[in-house]
């Protein structure tokens, strides 16, 4: 049989991992979770401080809870389930470049998260009727989802209980320690996203970390670092 080196099979890997993520239960669960952001944003329109309520709905619940937890759920399982079920062997032992696997996993995770997180949280930003919030929300959520997904795809390869470790990170680090002040907030993905939204809502970010160039650069750096780590991990891994 003639063997060639055609285009890298990134599309096939992406389609496989994407289809594995699209389960009815997961879509409904995450869809409901995302839709609650819209409900909270609607309710916030009746609050005394509309901008603060909008920040709470979009940056607090939408980004801090929906985006973070959906990302940890989806991204850790993209490769984590393959490891857990012993299916990674079917990809890992092929001649395909191994860096394609985490890239495809990141793309698949982001596709799912765009549907169940980005869309409802952006709608939530729109219903608050705060000027400029939609664009800032789209940017902040996209950057945060990319960073979270990359981090959690790598985490899924590194730990058997990646989902739980991810949840612990979200709950303890992102939602408690990072809120202590701008010092710890510098090591929090959520803080950078929230600072972008807070600036658009013209309110003080709850972590005290103000929007700056770092708010855009750090999530991108984390995304790249996560992919590099995942690729190195795959290269050195012992597969069941």
């Amino acid at each position: 049989m003639r063997l060639t080196r055609p285009r890298p099979p990134i599309k096939e890997l992406y389609r496989l991992l994407w289809r594995m993520q699209i389960t009815r239960g997961r879509l409904i669960g995450l869809g409901v979770l995302g839709s609650i952001t819209i409900l909270i944003a609607l309710l916030g329109r009746g609050a005394d401080d509309v901008n603060d309520a909008a920040l709470g709905a979009v940056a607090g619940y939408g980004l801090g809870v929906v985006a973070a937890i959906s990302a940890v759920w989806v991204a850790t399982s993209t490769l984590g389930n393959l490891v857990e079920d012993g299916l990674l062997v079917y990809l890992w032992t092929k001649p395909t470049d191994r860096w394609l696997i985490p890239i495809a996993a990141l793309a698949a995770s982001l596709s799912v998260l765009a549907m169940v997180v980005l869309v409802p949280v952006s709608i939530a930003a729109a219903v608050t009727e705060v000027d400029g919030l939609v664009t800032a929300t789209i940017a902040a959520v996209t950057l945060s989802l990319a960073a979270y997904s990359s981090l959690f795809v790598a985490l899924g390869l590194a730990f058997r209980r990646a989902l739980w470790w991810g949840l612990a990170y979200i709950l303890i680090w992102e939602n408690v320690i990072a809120r202590v002040g701008s010092g710890t907030a510098r090591f929090s993905i959520l803080s950078y996203g929230q600072s972008i939204i807070a600036r658009a809502a013209d309110t003080e970010p709850r972590t005290g970390l103000r929007s700056s160039a770092a708010s855009w650069i750090v999530p991108i750096v984390v995304t790249v670092a996560g992919m590099v780590f995942a690729t190195r991990r795959l290269d050195r891994a012992e597969i069941d």
Binding site: G29, L33, I36, V65, I69, V72, W73, T76, S77, G80, R161, A162, L163, W164, L167, I170, L171
Partner: peptide, 14 residues
């Protein structure tokens, strides 16, 4: 296990 963990956190936080 992982999904149940996520569901518990999501439910309680939501």
């Amino acid at each position: 296990n992982g999904i149940a963990s996520a569901l518990i956190v999501i439910t309680l936080m939501t």
